[in-house]
Design a protein around this nucleic acid. Sequence first.
DNA 1: CCTGTTATTTTAACGTGTTATAGATTCATA
DNA 2: TATGAATCTATAACACGTTAAAATAACAGG
Lengths: 231, 231
Amino acid sequence: MGLLDEHKSERRARILAAARRHVARHGYDGLTMRDLAQAARVSVPTLYNLFGGKDAILTAALAESVERVAALHVPADTTYFGRALLGFDAGMTMIADAPDFYRRLIPLFMTSPEARPIRMRTELGFLALMTANLTAARDAGQLAEWAEPRVVAGHMFAQYMAAFLHWGVGEVDLDGFRTLALSGICHLLLGVARGRFAEEVAARARELTPRVAALADTRPTQEAPHARSAD
Amino acid sequence: MGLLDEHKSERRARILAAARRHVARHGYDGLTMRDLAQAARVSVPTLYNLFGGKDAILTAALAESVERVAALHVPADTTYFGRALLGFDAGMTMIADAPDFYRRLIPLFMTSPEARPIRMRTELGFLALMTANLTAARDAGQLAEWAEPRVVAGHMFAQYMAAFLHWGVGEVDLDGFRTLALSGICHLLLGVARGRFAEEVAARARELTPRVAALADTRPTQEAPHARSAD
DNA sequence: CCTGTTATTTTAACGTGTTATAGATTCATA
DNA sequence: TATGAATCTATAACACGTTAAAATAACAGG
């Protein structure tokens, strides 16, 4: 509450900002604790006092971004499919905001135990939105009666994550990521949607299929430049 | 061809075996190049001469395992769904063989540029099998006419990978991995399968749904023990 | 203003992956 | 068997993440 804590907050902010900038430009391995300390006008042990380590710093930077999307407002005056698209696009615009930063941190985000809270937050946010959406669809008779909204939402999230990973390792570009994830989600909904919901999903799946097929054809079959090393 | 190359092969084998053993027990970070050199009765620079680095060594160990599943024989005298299950099970038994080893290396396998050839090999193998299977199903009138086998197979692979990742970070156990991946694949096929293919898929999806729902309920909501650090 | 507490810095060190250099060993060949 | 060419080893070093220790600065309360 005192000035002491304010200074601590300032330092934290300076460190996170410097880390963001540096990672976006030079990648995870390109960021050294000694450089970061100098850029943030702070000593190395302070980095450890305030955060705990390199991964913890980048994790905190990631968490900041995720929180920004957490408070998400999805209007109810669209179709079930339209609502699903809105939630999907929110995550996409966040990534499009600073693609290099996210891309460089995908290994950390995907697998590190440090980043598990962020993963949970992302997944639970997605699941909550989609589960509510699918439950409403089921109540309106636009979902197969045996289908479990939460289970279906989980499989949708799997499609999203797999496409995210494909983008992270450089297999597809940002547009390909979007196409891939959307097509996967539509394919998934295809078997459980009914009525108008089903019609919309089917139309979109048909439209996306050739684009996904084209994507697969243009994928590099040889090694991509090492994304993790510093440039 | 000469004795010189044989000795080199022996060294490579010794190094890979020692790395396997050590990683399964103490994890990625628990394996140091100096320890590995000693365990393989080899000097540290030799590790770099023969492989190129730590990641390259583990990548080579992973590649060995993947190659063992590559030569896969799938009998044609089953239903399309049965054949899909066979290919799926092959990958599962490989993982069940040395789960600790694979689990510890998931971050490397999933995201490292070094491991891209292995990822491609895995993905292409899966896609080839499933695409052939789906194409045959389409020719037999058991697949929606607008569906693209390769695209559907890609989305199936996404379900598989997402479940794999969930297992790798400790979100579900090996049985949960199997249940999750199968349910996802069945949900995905649900919208494009027709005839008897569709009946089998639908029956399996209905059967798996409650199990996946139960899985989601028992998931830990707090932090798991750090899997990457040495024990 | 002084004092005690707390936070930050300084400095040094440890173990790590990685690499260069020079010396020893091992193989193929004459 | 002796020579030459690879190849491995030994040693040392570098930069990195991380942490411990003591010294210094900044704060809160009297």
